[in-house]
Structures are given as structure tokens and as C-alpha cells.
């Protein structure tokens, strides 16, 4: 679990640096949270929710608004993505 969290912190740290300096037109963190929720969820640890939390926190730090707003937005987004995939997407959805 700690390994996953550390990986997510480093991953989002890199993303936040890129988004705030090099590619500030792209919502990289939001895209990353959605992709993690779709492709990188583990059975024993919910990377999607942890990613939303860490990514949201970094977004909050580098935005001007209230701390926690982006955490909540990304958590809601994660729950939505997970619900949609649980209810409406057949597994495995990449069937050859």
C-alpha cells in the first residue's frame, strides 16, 4: 500500500510540475485521475481514490482557491467513473 501511495505522490508531483510550467493548457491531473480509475485499479488498494486525493491536493496547492475543493471534485469524478464502469462496462472490455 505504501509503495502505491509513494508512486502516486511521485507521479502526481511530476504531473503538477509539468502542468504548472510546461503544458499549462492541458488538464493533465484530471486526465490522469480518470485513466487511473479506468486502468490502474487494484483489488487490494483503490488507486483511483488515492490518486484523486493526491492529485486533488496538488491541484489545490497550485490553484488560488480554497484547499480541498479539487480533492472533492476529483473524488466525486472517481466515484462517477468507477460507478459507470461497474454498472455499464463489461469486463474484460478489451476483448480480442
Amino acid at each position: 500500500m505504501i509503495k502505491h501511495v509513494l508512486f502516486l505522490i511521485l507521479f502526481f508531483f511530476a504531473l503538477v510540475l509539468i502542468q504548472s510550467t510546461l503544458l499549462f493548457g492541458l488538464p493533465l491531473i484530471i486526465i490522469a485521475v480518470v485513466l487511473i480509475n479506468i486502468f490502474y485499479r487494484k483489488a487490494n488498494f483503490d488507486n483511483g481514490i488515492a490518486g484523486a486525493f493526491i492529485g486533488g491536493f496538488f491541484l489545490d496547492i497550485f490553484s488560488s482557491g480554497l484547499l480541498g475543493v479539487w480533492v472533492v471534485i476529483l473524488l466525486v469524478l472517481s466515484f462517477l467513473v468507477q460507478t459507470i464502469f461497474k454498472k455499464y462496462v463489461r469486463k474484460p472490455f478489451f476483448k480480442i
Partner: peptide, 11 residues
């Protein structure tokens, strides 16, 4: 040092 994500502001 950087640009704000969603506003026209810089740090």
C-alpha cells in the same frame, strides 16, 4: 516559477 492552472495568474 509557474502558472496557475485555471486562471490567468502566475507565481
Amino acid at each position: 516559477t509557474g502558472k496557475d492552472f485555471f486562471q490567468d495568474s502566475i507565481s
